[in-house]
């Protein structure tokens, strides 16, 4: 028996919205400790990793580990039928399920919707991602990071991110010209202004803005985002989801030929 009930179903809707442009199909692994998912984009330069802890669910039961192969597009179609205030319950009682049941219930418990989504058998291509001590970690407003990426992507396809002890600089060079946005360390009480820099070693890395803009679809999941970088390593962009877990994106850096 597997059953997972989310009090705030809208979080699940937002997660699926955040990843649906990046990955087409995913294996969700359910275990006693919660749900996890890892998937790469078709070019294998970006990866999404989701972890949801059992404690963050209103009800959670998973008697034995199961893998749920899902089409994100089809999952998205079903989740469109859930209201933003609904609870969402995922359920299956088969050991090797061919479908996953969904229950959506509104706050007054006056409307209950039930769907079943056919599952797919997918090759798992899971990568071992080591726990890394990143040499530059930036925590800032997710909306502000999203705005910077969107603005710069009209000038260039790539952005260079350079850190120092005091600031982080986002630079672009394009056919029309060049520019940069520098954000300084700011210990404001307001989330929207706050910028936390933890710089053990400065880094200078270049990334494709197209992917960063896709990651930023997760902006509604968290008011802050953390950018984790080490020289010659993939960027890790993390959105923490309250008590529930985290949504992480990894992106390979651009390198000179």
């Amino acid at each position: 028996m597997f059953e997972a009930k989310l009090q705030q179903g809208v979080i699940f809707k937002k997660i699926v919205d955040a990843i649906k442009d990046l990955v087409k199909s995913v294996n969700i692994d359910a275990s006693t400790s919660g749900l996890s998912m890892q998937a790469m984009d078709s070019a294998h330069v970006a990866l999404v990793s989701l972890k949801l802890n059992e404690n963050g669910f209103k009800d959670y039961r998973c008697d034995r580990p199961i893998t749920l192969g899902l089409s994100i597009e089809n999952l998205s179609k079903i989740l469109k039928c859930a209201g933003n205030d609904d609870t969402i319950t995922l359920q299956t009682d088969e050991e090797e399920p061919s479908s996953l049941k969904f229950f959506f219930e509104n706050q007054q418990a006056s409307k209950i919707s039930e769907f079943s989504l056919n599952l797919m058998s997918l090759d798992s291509e899971s990568l071992g991602i080591p726990d890394t001590d990143y040499s530059s970690v930036i925590q800032m407003s997710s909306a502000e990071f999203s705005r910077i990426c969107k603005e710069l992507s009209s000038i260039s396809e790539t952005v260079e991110i350079e850190t120092s002890k005091e600031s982080v600089k986002f630079s672009v060079q394009g056919d029309i010209g060049a520019g940069s946005i520098t954000v300084k360390n700011n210990q404001s009480d307001k989330d929207v202004d706050r910028v936390d820099l933890q710089i053990d070693q400065p880094v200078k890395l270049t990334f494709a803005l197209r992917y960063l803009n896709m990651f930023n679809k997760a902006v509604s999941l968290s008011s802050t985002v953390s950018l984790n970088m080490s020289e010659e390593n993939p960027l890790m962009v993390e959105y923490k989801i309250d008590d529930l877990g985290s949504l992480r994106f990894y992106l390979a850096p651009k390198i000179s030929d």
Binding site: V45, E125, L127, A252, I255, S256
Partner: peptide
Amino acid sequence: NKNQNSLTTYFSNQ
């Protein structure tokens, strides 16, 4: 010109 390696260059297959 800049290129981009696959993530499998950085992370091992499991």
